[in-house]
């Protein structure tokens, strides 16, 4: 057998302790540290209003210029919390305003509460969790000692091809950004073939001390998923019409 002993042991332990199925999920507690890599020249390549010449120029000048940010996903059996952490390529220590990006999931009540700063405002998206229409593909690969299966879907609003690699032996339907609803934890999320790739770098199953409850008081405008999608769709459409890059003002 070729997967980490730790996980096998854990799996065995879990299976042995399994009296009620709910107990299984409850034990799934821990923290995943992701590295989110944005390939800027490729991202600019998606701006269809630019000519081939302009795109090539950006590619030739900036090569594989990319930025790296650390993201954290904290979870216990019922709840999860995903947020941005430090910038990994900021040696000089310059500080800039971090846009609010806090995604709370309650798997028991199937509720999402997302605090997202975009379009110059802080929005609180409150709604039920709806999973996208995933397709399960016949590819596997290993991430951080976990065997992952490939699933793909499409963001019809932002016109993105989404590839997720999920580990079915972490049976929690969450993952980076707004994605989830798969039979296992998403350990890698690839937006548009490598433009933004969020990969798990550290997977720790441990009791977590950080508070992952939705804060009682949050400032921001409350909207539901439908309104959120409309906002995004309108902004993407307007930005393309005005020949502006939409991803400066909202998460890509």
């Amino acid at each position: 057998m070729n997967f980490p002993k730790y996980n096998l042991m854990r799996l065995l332990a879990i299976m042995l302790s399994l009296s009620f199925s709910t107990a299984f999920a409850q034990k799934m507690e821990g923290e995943i540290t992701y590295e989110k890599v944005t390939a800027w020249p490729k991202l600019y390549g998606t701006l269809t209003y630019m000519s081939n010449e302009e795109r090539d120029r950006i590619k030739q000048t900036w090569g594989d210029d990319e930025s790296k940010q650390e993201m954290r996903l904290l979870f216990n059996g019922q709840k999860s919390f995903y947020t941005s952490s430090k910038h990994l390529d900021n040696d000089a220590g310059w500080s800039w305003n971090e846009k609010e990006y806090k995604l709370y999931r309650d798997m028991e009540t199937e509720k999402r509460t997302d605090i997202i700063e975009m379009l110059g405002k802080i929005y609180i998206v409150e709604d039920s969790v709806r999973a996208p229409k995933w397709k399960i593909m016949n590819k596997i690969k290993e991430i951080g000692g976990y065997m992952c299966m490939m699933a793909v879907t499409e963001d019809t609003v932002k016109k993105q091809k989404i590839t997720a690699w999920f580990a079915d032996n972490i049976p929690l339907g969450v993952g980076p950004d707004l994605y989830g609803g798969l039979p296992g934890m998403i350990l890698e999320l690839d937006i548009n073939d490598g433009i933004v790739v969020t990969t798990a770098k550290k997977i720790e199953m441990k009791p977590i001390t950080d508070d992952i409850e939705v804060p009682k008081k949050i400032k921001g405008r409350k909207i539901n998923e439908q309104q959120y999608n409309t906002l995004v769709a309108n902004h993407v459409r307007d930005s393309f019409k005005a020949r502006r890059a939409f991803f400066w003002t909202m998460p890509y």
């Binding site: 229409k133 995933w134 397709k135 399960i136 032996n169 049976p171 296992g184």
Partner: peptide, 24 residues
């Protein structure tokens, strides 16, 4: 094999319609 992931897909495009896990 307990706790195996069982998924039901649509044959035409592999869309996931349901999933669950095996018992003991």
């Amino acid at each position: 094999l307990p706790e195996a992931t069982v998924m039901l897909l649509l044959p035409k495009d592999s869309s996931l319609v349901n999933f669950g896990r095996t018992g003991k």
